[in-house]
Nucleic acid binder design. Structure first.
Lengths: 265, 265
DNA sequence: CATTCGTCTGCATGTTTGTGCATGATTTGT
DNA sequence: ACAAATCATGCACAAACATGCAGACGAATG
């Protein structure tokens, strides 16, 4: 008896910690595990497996069920949902927008929810540098080893969700991004691009001045509307990314200003 | 006996330092080591191997497990993987930590998952300014109208999850926060505070120099362990926030250095 | 050369941890 | 509702553990 146990124990190269790690991996892969199955695989009794599962459940990794355990859906679900259907309008816009980006470039992502989606939509291993004044963009790119992130410093504007102010202006002045995704609040053929606050508009004006190419990404409700503070003329915009069902009439007017229209699918 | 031992000792090229280096390489290669296996290989007793492993664990190289040790990936793992672990414990720590904050202060929140929890735990309408090099902290405070947020600019370190580098150092130099919550990777009575990378340590050193009062918040696994790069001595820390079940012996040693211990509930 | 000190080692001691098994309690499927 | 499967709990045991101790050795000191 004791011999059997000793034999198993020493022959088995797996520490409890390793074993639990393997169970974790299996949980994310399959979503569920069976106690009996694991016991057979590791060559130990189901009791020990149950102990492991109990600990993992206590750590919040999985949830115990009769016969085994299922993965705690919280961390997994969003990734799956994201890759599958349910792609929002802004995500479709983002997918169209990122096609304008090339590896090796210095790209500026302005503050805004759309630009956060663009950050998330950047292709794997594209290898570029992203400058931004948006903490949310930085967080979205935190786990991307192929993307160097440079954050503009300064006072955070809660309304805009980005860094604004004098120091930010100076910092942007010192860099020459190849491409800039401008977070516009309004875009109109006559009024041009507009923002909701004076400080935001001032920052975006500096962006337009500093960046080699400007891309505006606009959902339908932003087309043909004005905003209190002007940023730039339509002529300053290189590309305008719009939704698939954007108003054709508006687009025709805009295209006449020389801006290249990109339609999302 | 003595002859045997001497023979072994000289025959094996293993001074403790050499031996530990070999164990390090083994850890990198295999990710784990078995105490009995190493003892057989080096021709010494398991006791000495265990001593080595204990030292390596204290240095943060590996994590001791029953039967041997596994490579310590935790400190070097990207921050997003760490973020969901131990949330409950860190929230309790955060609740204790925010009691050190007073309205109207300029508080610096260093990068780290614990400090994100501290940001979330700041009382409603406390009314203060938070400076940070962590985009995640900034995002957590985005909807807090009573808190002014100042973000340090510069290159984002994906491992640390915060802005590091020369410009960040200069920016911190220019401000005088009343209070700083330092994201320490390791804290030990002799080695002091430690970080996992040189750049991170340099930034934290500047924080210690610039800030009026330093608060270190440490989960249990960080107590009594060392890290490759030193930040500061224990004496530089004003308050140390620890978990309710932190090792009393360690705390007694730490308290003797003059640091004020705050226990979470 | 003798001695003193610090380090490293192995051993003895008692403690902790991981494991399997027995025993009821609980849950599931039919 | 009943049998089978699964589970939680307590127990026993061996492996692995921390700790204190003493001997051996090298280096520094007189």
């Amino acid at each position: 008896m004791s011999l059997e146990r000793k034999e198993r124990f020493t022959a088995n190269t797996a520490f409890p910690a390793d074993r639990q790690q393997l169970i974790r991996e299996r949980l994310v892969r399959d979503g569920r595990v069976l106690a009996a199955e694991l016991a057979a695989e590791f060559g130990i009794s189901e009791d020990s497996i149950r102990r492991d599962l109990r600990e993992l459940a206590a750590a919040g990794v999985c949830q115990r069920v009769y016969g085994g355990a299922i993965a705690q859906a919280a961390a997994n679900r969003p990734i799956l949902e994201r890759s599958r259907e349910n792609i929002g309008r802004k995500q479709k816009l983002a997918l169209a927008a990122v096609r304008l980006v090339q590896g090796g470039q210095l790209v500026f992502l302005d503050a805004g929810t759309t630009n956060v989606e663009i950050a998330k939509a950047l292709p794997e291993d594209i290898g570029l540098t992203v400058a931004t004044n948006s903490p949310a963009v930085a967080v979205a790119l935190m786990d991307r080893d192929d993307i160097e992130v440079v954050l503009i410093g300064g006072r955070l504007d809660h309304q805009v969700g980005g860094i604004l102010g004098g120091q930010a202006l100076v910092d942007v002045q010192r860099m020459r991004p190849d491409l800039c995704f401008l977070g516009v609040c309004a875009i109109d053929i006559e009024a041009g691009l507009g923002a909701g606050t004076a400080e935001d508009a001032a920052f975006k004006r500096q962006l337009v001045a500093s960046c080699g190419a400007i891309v505006a990404v606009a959902t339908n409700e932003k087309l043909g509307t004005g905003a209190p503070f002007a940023i730039a003329d339509i002529q300053d915009v290189g590309h305008l990314v719009v939704e698939a069902d954007a108003d054709a009439n508006q687009l025709a007017h805009l295209a006449r200003s020389g801006v290249e229209i990109v339609r999302a699918s």
